[in-house]
């Protein structure tokens, strides 16, 4: 008898179709952590929507949570589809898989606008600095001077997804590394508990086109250069935080998420306040300059209203369940209009 979670589902209930991504692709490891996070959070797959654009990353939603509705849309345009899609039933959770090309090249405009609208969406960028499906061209997150087999040298400055998100008023910004499964899972859990946009920039190496040791998106570079900004733990709302968990007083900071769950941040080498946007930008910039891959919850704001909140929808009713009685005004209203239209 397989183990079940609190909604009576097994881990298998969170699986999708078998992956067709390359063996060793960072995206597979992210997908695994999404499934594990959803299982541990007791999410019903039927209550989760999946969205993606085009690219290797965007194929991913096929490979997790097959019982969830999903929409694999257009290159760079996923944020638009997700925005409209979530209004169908705003009580559902939503997760989006995008890539560095999908987000920071063709989709940069939509990325920034979905952030400023604060759509309640877990927005994961599986970031490998390279186009996979079209065979190894530079993406906008590729570092200056990167050399790729068929492309030569990258001549342009990279775009930093985290900095772009911070500048666009994102309410939850994190960076992680596909090689750190535990951290990815905890961040995904926290992101699902956030009521607003949560941007997760996850360095996810492309083993086929961009995994040479010196590449900033490779496994070995990530392992050598990452530095956790703090130790990160997600505590579900039912669970108490105890001393036995090993949290030392004075060195932890608690963030209470919208649904009552908590994120516990334990101090490591530096003092870091995740509520301070300006400091976040400065810290990330400095880390970038020193070739440090800074991971963890970089910024959070739990007080801003989400896009859905701004539209005053009925709390417990889905728009897509409404029928004629609630949608078509009575004839008397039209008579009134006819009388008023001069």
């Amino acid at each position: 008898m397989a183990e079940t979670n609190n909604v009576g589902l097994t881990k298998a209930d969170y699986r999708g179709a078998p992956t067709t991504l390359c063996a060793g692709c960072g995206h597979n490891s992210i997908n695994n952590q999404i499934m594990a996070a959803a299982y541990e959070l007791d999410l019903l797959p039927e209550n989760v929507l999946k969205f993606s654009g085009i690219g290797c990353s965007s194929k991913s939603p096929t490979y997790f949570m097959g019982r969830s509705f999903g929409f694999n849309s257009l290159h760079g345009r996923m944020p638009a589809v997700a925005t409209g899609g979530l209004f169908g039933d705003h009580r559902l959770k939503a997760i989006a898989m995008s890539g560095d090309g999908d987000t920071s090249n063709i989709g940069m405009g939509h990325f920034k606008h979905v952030i400023r609208r604060n759509l309640p969406l877990v927005y994961i960028v599986a970031n490998n600095g390279v186009y996979g499906l079209t065979k190894g061209q530079f993406s906008a997150t590729a570092e200056l001077g990167l050399r790729l087999k068929s492309q030569g040298e990258n001549l342009y400055m990279p775009i930093d997804i985290v900095l772009e998100a911070l500048a666009s008023s994102a309410t939850f910004v994190a960076r992680s590394f596909a090689g750190d499964a535990a951290q990815v899972k905890e961040l995904v859990k926290a992101a699902f508990s956030h009521d607003g946009i949560s941007v997760l920039d996850i360095i996810s190496p492309c083993v086929t086109f961009n995994n040479r040791d010196e590449s900033h998106h490779s496994y070995s570079w990530g392992k050598q250069h990452r530095e956790m900004i703090h130790d990160f733990n997600f505590i579900p709302k039912e669970q108490e935080i105890t001393v036995e968990d090993g949290f030392e007083e004075g060195s932890v900071q608690q963030v209470t998420m919208h649904d009552g769950s908590k994120v516990v941040l334990q101090k490591l080498d530096r003092d870091y306040d995740p509520y301070d946007r300006i400091n976040a930008i400065k810290t990330v910039q400095e880390a970038n300059q020193k070739d440090i891959l800074l991971t963890g919850l970089i910024f959070v704001d739990t007080s801003s209203k989400s896009l859905i909140d701004l539209y005053e929808l009925p709390e417990d009713r889905a728009l897509n369940r409404m029928q004629q009685e609630e949608l078509r005004p009575p004839k008397g209203m039209l008579d009134l209009i006819n009388a008023q239209m001069f």
Binding site: A80, T83, H110
Partner: peptide, 22 residues
Amino acid sequence: VQAEDELSAIGMSIGAGWAGLR
């Protein structure tokens, strides 16, 4: 919703249509 461009305007509308909204 006033979208950021027409790509997004139709994209949002299609997302909503997919989700069962008129």
